[in-house]
């Protein structure tokens, strides 16, 4: 089958790229709810890896463990060979609910990570302005979050994560609270943005199309308890017009394959 072919190819690619984040034997239980069981994963440097699965399968839990925001019940996470025991400067998080300070302007929100690190005002605002421009929000620096649409707010969240210059960006369903049109535009922008930044992205989503559209690798999680059921590397050329990808035969095939695999978990 095509999936096995993909997996073989994946392991070939896998050995050639060094892993920046390594997850070994992660288990997590909340009381007697077993959220994750024995997760072993490598995240290659410079790639965008999606964690895909139905809601409740432990995607957010896994991402927050990698972020150091919650502890695992067993297992370990290393980033660049260093053991993770809490948040660190080499990782930055983009939140599902944006987590913007309503009392702060776009500029201050974007510069907040640097503000907490004690970077001087002029320097951090200059950096923030650069990333505000990169996510397409120039001219909105002095607006407050409540004056922005959902899509624009998440661009602020992304710019904040970019401006601390972390190597690994962790995104928890960043587009789920953004309306459909803006989501698609944002996905295209993310592809463009990635081609300019040599960063590692770990991206949580429950949308098959979104995962196939933007990812170099897709990790499929099965629910209750969350386990890795499959790793897929869609071989899609993203260099040209991002709109073209939606009509790419390989894109459509991969979406269909994943759906066939996930169907069993949906009533």
């Amino acid at each position: 089958m095509a999936v096995t072919a993909l997996r073989e190819k994946q392991s070939a690619v896998h050995t050639s790229v060094e892993a920046i984040v390594e997850v070994k034997g992660i288990c997590k239980s909340y009381g007697n709810v077993e959220a994750l069981r024995d997760i072993d994963l490598d995240f290659p440097r410079g790639k965008l890896t999606s964690l895909l699965g139905p809601s409740g399968c432990g995607k957010t839990t896994l991402l927050k463990i990698i972020a150091g925001l919650i502890g695992a019940s067993a297992g370990s996470v290393t980033v660049d060979g260093k053991h993770v025991s809490g948040p660190g400067p080499e990782r930055a998080f983009v939140f599902q609910d944006f987590a913007l300070m309503p009392w702060a302007t776009v500029l201050r929100n974007v510069a907040f990570g640097l503000e907490l690190r004690g970077t001087g005002k002029t320097e951090r605002e200059e950096t923030a302005r650069r990333y505000i421009a990169q996510v397409g929000l120039s001219g909105f620096e002095d607006k407050y979050p409540h004056e922005l649409s959902g899509g624009m707010r998440q661009r602020v969240g992304l710019a904040r994560a970019l401006s601390v210059d972390a190597e690994v960006l962790l995104l928890d369903e960043p587009f789920s609270a953004v309306d459909e049109q803006n989501r698609r535009k944002f996905q295209e922008d993310l592809i463009r943005l990635r081609s300019k930044q040599n960063k590692t992205f770990i991206f949580v989503t429950h949308s098959i199309e979104e995962a196939v559209y933007i990812s170099d690798r897709i990790v499929l999680l099965s629910p209750r308890p969350g386990r890795v059921s499959q790793v897929i590397e869609p071989d899609i050329n993203r260099s040209g017009d991002p709109d073209r990808i939606h009509r790419d035969q390989h894109y459509l095939d991969t979406v269909e394959e994943i759906w066939q695999g996930l169907k069993q978990y949906v009533e």
Partner: peptide, 13 residues
């Protein structure tokens, strides 16, 4: 290329 502000978002404002 990345400096694109979406029209639909701008009009929301």
């Amino acid at each position: 290329a990345t400096n694109v502000r979406t029209e639909s978002e701008a009009t929301n404002l």
